[in-house]
Design a protein around this nucleic acid. Structure first.
Length: 301
DNA sequence: GGCCAGGGGATTA
DNA sequence: TAATCCCATGGC
């Protein structure tokens, strides 16, 4: 994929070419991320937190897809490899879909509804906090909480695409807060979890937290679950969406619904072992197709 | 292992 | 106006 960064009125342009299995609606609306919003022209605008070269980079960005080329405008120059990794471009989703479709015609139909899904490689810290907020919560409210958190405690990124943008707050910032400091973010009982988990990440060291990626799935799961407020559901989301553990199969109320409707499975344990056996190492990706499929079905009849 | 409080807001009854 | 629901977890 050829790409170049061109400076243009303090906006940095990156293009990603020859994209396959890539649809913005599917990627940003399959429940994996909370900061991208759709514009009238079909492009998406959001704020992304990266960590590379041992430092944090919060960037406001807009991504527009035309045919098989995506154009990203961003407030900072982010290496194209970093964007490629974010959108998981090294992974051949065509092959994964081919393998999954062979399993049965139910997953085949689910894939048809969200063919352009890709699992983003999101920042591990941001994903931890985002999914702590997600528990027993709905997507519009999760987005509101994260927005409030960023507005109050994140780095101001200036105006971009008609709105003031704010970076995702960093561990040192959140770790120093009290529950009262967070009251206007309306996080409810999750505020305490966020503060405690932030302290735990600071104490273990950001590097060691990120290096959990190197551990095997079971060990990584236990490590993540050791953070305050992280149970099995949230741990699976964090592992899938930011630690590249693609076997992880998060089971929430939507997944319970789709697995009951489609596969007539009603117990969580049954769903778990079924997913492991049926989808194996692609469990997490199958989960995203199923999640998108049931949400589409419920929203559009 | 089962139960229930934890917050807050949108939606439904 | 009241009940229910939401990408759950901790503590008993």
């Amino acid at each position: 994929m050829v790409k170049e960064n061109v400076r243009e009125n303090t906006v940095y342009i990156t293009s990603l070419k020859n994209l396959k299995d890539f649809e913005l609606n599917h990627i940003f609306d399959c429940g994996q991320c909370f900061r991208w919003e759709k514009e009238e022209d079909g492009s998406y605008t959001g704020v992304v937190l990266f960590r590379y070269n041992e430092s944090w980079h919060n960037v406001a960005a807009n991504i527009k897809l035309k045919n098989s080329e995506a154009t990203i405008q961003a407030t900072k120059a982010i290496p194209v490899e970093v964007w490629e990794n974010y959108f998981d471009l090294k992974v051949d989703y065509g092959q994964i879909k081919y393998e999954l479709r062979l399993k049965d015609d139910k997953i085949d139909e689910a894939i048809n509804s969200g063919e352009g899904i890709r699992i983003l490689n999101q920042n591990k810290w941001e994903t931890l906090i985002s999914f702590l907020i997600s528990q027993n919560n709905n997507i519009p409210r999760i987005k509101g909480c994260i927005q409030a958190l960023s507005k109050n405690f994140g780095e101001p990124l200036g105006e971009f695409m008609g709105s003031e943008r704010f970076g995702f707050p960093l561990p040192e910032t959140l770790g120093k807060l009290t529950v009262e400091d967070l009251s206007e973010c309306k996080l409810g009982y999750r505020a305490g979890y966020i503060i405690e988990s932030s302290k735990q990440v600071i104490n273990m060291g950001v590097k060691e937290f990120f290096d959990i990626e190197e551990l095997d799935e079971m060990t990584a799961f236990e490590k993540i679950k050791g953070l305050k407020g992280v149970g099995p559901k949230v741990a699976h989301c964090i592992l899938l969406f930011s630690f590249k553990k693609r076997e992880s199969f998060p089971i929430d109320v939507w997944m319970k619904k789709v697995m009951a409707d489609v596969y007539d499975l009603n117990k969580e344990k049954e769903i778990e072992s079924f997913a492991k056996e049926k989808f194996g190492r692609n469990g997490g990706i199958a989960q995203q197709y199923l999640f998108y499929y049931i949400r589409e079905l419920e929203n559009n009849g």
